[in-house]
Amino acid sequence: MNVLLKFYHRLGSPREFYKISSALIPWLGWTSLILILLASYLGLVVAPSDYQQGDSYRIIYVHVPSAWLSMFIYVVLAVSAAIGLIWRMKMAYVIMICSAAPGAWFTMVALITGSLWGKPMWGTWWEWDARLTSELLLMFLYIGIIALYNSFDERRVAEKSTAILAIVGVINVPIIHYSVEWWNTLHQGSTVMRADGPAMDVRMLWPLLIMAFGFNLYYGLTLMQRARNQVLVQEARSSWVQSLVTEREQQ
């Protein structure tokens, strides 16, 4: 417990966070790269064609992990916002604002790859149905969060206002998830996250799970990269940053 508490305090300090994130970045980078490449090989070459959708279903390996991640990142963002508001933890707001851009990118990937999958399977690029519309709303939420944060000069005001928007917006996440059950949608229902277990051939399922795990580590990577940049900007005047940059020069 003591070790955990210590680790929590270390993460809460920007200086320690900078050190820890810098050490983590290469590990996250290589493991996510290996997992994504492995899943790509398994998904594109090893997995068999679908009996209904032929090879078009292989879009699933980029579409579904992106869509999952777009929701997961939003939950991380909203939880960090709440931690920031309740415990006034400095680093929580950094995690919050640095998650917004990756979240927006993954939402965009999910929307565009979904569109590219929809055209051959449904015969349309876009349909205003519940799943697609709520995912589009998620995109606007991410963009709104970034815009709101950047519209204030005072950082503390920006952090608080953005945190409130982020927490209110979390209502959209269960709406996206259950949209295929609550409404009649063109989008198919869940194949993997089902009460009775995944309805999918294992040779198709494994690459998907590996890809999803790789994408999650990748999010960790880009988050750490962005967060340490944010820490540098916020702490530019502190003595540890100044000695960090001058130390580097002497090496």
Partner: peptide, 14 residues
């Protein structure tokens, strides 16, 4: 399987 114009742009974009 004839879906090259949908599968490859998805993967490349990602």
């Amino acid at each position: 399987g004839g879906y090259a114009w949908y599968v490859w742009p998805s993967w490349l974009l990602t």
